[in-house]
Amino acid sequence: MKFIRILLMLTLAVGIAACGNSKFRKYNGPEVTQIQVHKADRKMYLIHKTEVLKEYDISLGFNPVGHKQFEGDGKTPEGLYFISHHNPRSRYHLSVGISYPNENDLTYALEQGKDPGGDIMIHGRTNYDSRHKGDWTAGCIAIEDDDMEEVYSMLRKNTPIYIFP
């Protein structure tokens, strides 16, 4: 009987400890009204009106100079896009989708007889091979996993994201 009680207490303790390590955070601060990504500086800013709420160091596509045009070009898009969705099951810890390609991107790629690509995200680094330094994604914006948990909680669908060269 004493053994069962101890076993139950240990199970309860492990369960409570596991809940404390959730990657899903709560955010009750000011609304993020826009995101700015400055590719040249490798910085991302979450902004409320004119106030920078948070600043993050980022990694980009493995071929970061210039605007993404085609599938596999390794570039991160430039221009105005929007947060399209949250992905809690991302292979890169957590991710939020970016609305690339927009109508202009799609039209240009099709005129060139190519696929514009897609599935561009802001995501964490889980499963990242840390032997590679610098820019390493296929065109996404990558941040540390802890930072991604914070960003994931702060962003809402349709938040504008401005990606500058």
Rank of each mutant, 00 (worst) to 15 (best):
D73S: 07
S99N: 05
I143W: 00
C140W: 14
H48F: 15
M44C: 01
K114F: 09
P64S: 01
K43L: 01
C140S: 13
Y108K: 13
A138Y: 08
P116Q: 01
K54N: 07
Q112M: 13
G74M: 00
G118P: 07
V52N: 06
L60A: 04
G97Y: 05
H86F: 08
A109L: 08
I141Y: 10
G139T: 07
G139Y: 01
K49F: 01
Q112N: 14
H48G: 03
M121H: 11
I98D: 01
H93I: 08
K75C: 14
H85N: 11
H85C: 12
H132Y: 15
I141Q: 08
T137H: 04
N102C: 02
R131L: 00
K68W: 03
N104P: 10
N127P: 02
N104E: 10
G97D: 15
G124M: 06
G61S: 10
N87F: 06
E55K: 12
E78S: 14
F82P: 05
N104I: 14
N102H: 09
F70M: 15
D115V: 07
T107F: 10
K68Q: 02
K49T: 05
R125C: 15
G139P: 15
R42Y: 00
W136A: 12
S130H: 10
D135A: 03
H67T: 04
P101T: 10
E111K: 14
E103Y: 07
A142P: 07
P116R: 03
E111G: 13
N87A: 06
S84R: 04
Y128K: 14
D119G: 11
T137E: 01
V52W: 03
K114P: 02
A109P: 06
L106K: 10
D41C: 05
V52K: 03
A109E: 00
G134V: 15
G139F: 02
G134I: 12
D57L: 12
L110R: 07
W136D: 14
K75A: 08
P116H: 03
N63D: 12
T137F: 02
F82M: 06
G134S: 13
E78N: 07
T50E: 09
T76N: 00
S90E: 11
I47C: 00
K54T: 06
D57E: 12
K54M: 10
D135L: 07
K133W: 04
E111H: 15
S59K: 09
K114L: 15
P101I: 06
D105Q: 07
T107A: 12
P88Y: 11
R91F: 11
H86S: 12
Y128C: 11
D135M: 04
Y81K: 10
P64Y: 00
H132V: 12
H132C: 15
H67V: 08
G74D: 01
T76P: 00
G72E: 06
P88F: 04
I47T: 02
T50S: 05
E51F: 12
V96P: 07
D73M: 09
I83T: 11
F70A: 11
F70I: 15
